[in-house]
Design a protein around this nucleic acid. Structure first.
Lengths: 340, 340
DNA sequence: CAGACTTTTAGGTACGTACCTCAAAGCCTG
DNA sequence: CAGGCTTTGAGGTACGTACCTAAAAGTCTG
């Protein structure tokens, strides 16, 4: 049986109350008594029963996910995973809510962060680009004891702010390597399509992609990024414009996490002489496209893992516990038709 | 606040004791009373606080991993992850032990399974090929209330026996597709190297691999599998033999989970005109080989995930709880240098 | 409708920890 | 060594559930 606080008290030769004071950093214990108790903890290998402690505290965890207001399938998938996570974490008294923000308006985000009822929230996962306003608002929250994690976007991590997501530079490089290898004996241009290049993650992916192609695949030329703003018509137009000056497109790299619109257009535009197409994230649409051979590979991150990882990290912070780093590392996955 | 058993009792108009009997399927409750309580559960959305229940029961979980006695880096990684998992699951009163078996001796495995102290174990994860003896031994354990999962190998799942691991046919197909695409404009033979083709997982990987190559890449010929029996000298010899009749090797597929020995030999044998090499599993050695460009891609499964998943499934079975299927699906990962 | 049986109630204790109060013991200072 | 301070002890209650007992209430059978 695992040692309990009672065993600790006996071992250290003190009362339960003193053990309790030491364990919970309560004042009024002489230094040498603290030492004795800590020795006993080591000797017995005492591990606090977090579960019983939380029960006694009547503690529950309420976390908040701040997600963009606009989005498509990837966002919908994230939200679905949050609801799913609520079910499996319910047994541990953890609940997560979703609140939507205008991700491109730092002032509004800062305002939302500032106006949260601090008694209602134990931790926040924020999916928004890094900005001074948001950073300041986060710092104020941390001062008040609310932990935050940067979720998927805005990956500048500080001591008090973990980043939950992939290394987008590496993700772009992965796409680049696959593109290069799939086109080893061809020559031509590569179309890069993004919703907007203002997003930091798209930028980093593009940088990683270019690095690989430019270094190792001189047979390929990466064209300037086309921006779609989520609009199918505009996407069609910019692609056709691009084709005027660059008739042979060997590959298409869709940088954005929301790939549906660009992918639909690309599938329509290139009916024969199909280029190699690589996109990001697994959604019902990209998955179907992969099965139908419209896409050659997907670079993805597991949304369920992202959500659970954010929750586990926020809870560990609240409990002042260490996390199991290997479990929280979000993998850059490569999906082809065969390992869907 | 979440409703408790007390709230349930009030809502159903019965006493706590009756609620308790219904919740724990104890006898002595009239059918219509059971119905009333169940209605109250639905109405209030009652979720049993598993944590408090386990505390009251004084329950803890002891699981056992039966792993092969012989192995190399992949096995070592698994064991390390089990120890790691013990730390993070300690708070939930879960402990996992490792016991080694001769995986190729079904009688010995069955004997071990039969001689376990059933009061000391709540569930078992077995990494061993499927065999009638083992299947029978498992069935007897299940009768006695000990849950089992098939771990990585032996993937015939029954109602009472989940499989934790990847679809090896799909994993082989994934390797095949990558091999094919990496060699799109080349022609030549592909060497397939396995520790032994007696292992079901190696067989299935090979089948999946062949299916893709034979269907979609007529430029490539897959050679008969070479068996290494984990011996470097023998491996060198069989590869050289193979080269006599088949001088141009375009690709090498190392099927086994333990890739170190074959990979070392292959790296030495093919110093120039290096073929495309694909292997399985991430270990210190294969990871270094990938970084050093000795390997082109790795098809892997996350050992940490495997271990934690097995533990979560065994615990859920013990608690008669549903699992979150999406979390327990083990992914076939594709690793290249860029997404390590 | 009495007796036997089943179902239900009421109350308790326990799990391991948190947190509270009150009293006792120890220590220092003047 | 009295008065004030700090430290420690002893005891309690609580969290939500499990499991136990004794007795009350309800139902059935002959």
């Amino acid at each position: 049986m695992r040692p309990t606080t009672k065993d600790l008290a006996i071992e250290a030769g003190v009362s339960l109350a003193t053990v309790d004071r030491v364990l919970n950093n309560r004042p009024g214990v002489r230094e040498d008594t603290v030492f004795k108790v800590n020795e006993a903890i080591k000797k017995l290998g005492f591990i606090r029963n977090v579960v019983a402690a939380n029960l006694a505290r009547g503690k529950s965890y309420r976390f908040l996910f701040l997600l963009p207001r606009t989005g498509d399938e990837f966002l919908a998938g994230l939200i679905a995973r949050i609801h799913e996570a609520n079910q499996s974490f319910a047994a541990e008294m953890i609940h997560a809510d979703v609140m939507h923000i205008h991700e491109s308006d730092p002032h509004q985000i800062a305002k939302v962060l500032g106006s949260l009822d601090l008694d209602q929230v134990d931790g926040i996962a924020i999916m928004a680009p890094e900005s001074p306003q948001v950073r300041d608002a986060k710092a104020r929250l941390i001062e008040k004891g609310i932990d935050t994690v940067s979720f998927i976007a805005g990956q500048i991590a500080s001591d008090h702010d973990d980043f939950v997501g992939i290394d987008n530079h590496a993700a772009g490089a992965t796409a680049g390597r696959l593109m290069g290898r799939f086109l080893e004996h061809s020559a031509g241009a590569i179309l890069v399509i993004a919703e907007t290049m203002l997003a930091r993650d798209s930028l980093e992916r593009r940088l990683g992609f270019d690095e690989i192609i430019n270094t190792d695949y001189p047979n390929l030329v990466v064209l300037p990024s086309l921006e779609t703003y989520g609009d199918a018509e505009r996407t069609t137009r910019v692609i056709h414009n691009s084709l005027l000056s660059q008739p042979h497109i060997a590959g298409v790299y869709i940088v954005s996490s929301e790939a549906r619109v660009p992918l639909e257009v690309v599938t329509k535009v290139f009916t024969r002489d199909k280029p190699v197409i690589i996109a990001h994230e697994r959604t019902p649409f990209t998955e179907a496209a992969l099965r139908a051979n419209h896409v050659d590979a997907l670079i993805t991150q597991d949304p369920g893992h992202l959500v659970r990882s954010a929750i586990r990290i926020l809870r560990a912070r609240k409990d002042r516990r260490e996390i199991l780093a290997s479990q929280e590392k979000i993998r850059i996955e490569v999906l082809i038709k065969e390992n869907l």
